[in-house]
Amino acid sequence: MLDQSLSGGFANPAQDSARAFRAALSALARPGRIEALTGATAPDPVSPAAAALLLTLCDGETPLYLAPGHDSPAIRDWIAFHIGAPIVAPEAAQFALGRWESLPLAAFPVGTSDYPDRSTTLIVERDTLSNDGPRLTGPGIEVEAHLSLPETAAFRANRALFPLGLDFYFTADDRLAGLPRSTEVEDI
């Protein structure tokens, strides 16, 4: 277990995190677009894409919430060694990691009207990601896009808070998609 918590980081941290950030930027700037994201391995059940995202965006300055199912001693050790992010309650979290059904959406900060950027970014672990499902429109989307979201009501409620709201990343294996608060989500 010790071995597992010490390994799995980027081989070339500066270059690998630069590439991972570009995938994260592209995914969030073009909601619905699925990017590949590899190079990191965290203890199960954290996906390689989520592990790379954590290494790229989180550090000792970003309080992190681990949802039940992703809150194991092995994962905490891995985060303590590679990232150093304090593990906190959802109310204090800048980032959160977990499966959709385990994340307490209502508890995360959505920002303030003065500082809408002070909201949580959620990394939602999924079994698969594909470009079918609810219709997405809004900034970053030329006409419309489709993404296999777990539901739509929560995202419509989140969009209604704009410019406040939560921002989402969806990860499955080595695949990554983004859904910022600005995206309109409709059932089809």
Partner: peptide
């Protein structure tokens, strides 16, 4: 340095989320 880049990257992503 990497910590500075992470801080800037987080700001860029929030900027993308709130155009």
């Amino acid at each position: 340095d990497e910590q500075t880049k992470r801080m800037i990257r987080r700001a860029i992503l929030k900027g993308i989320a709130v155009p």
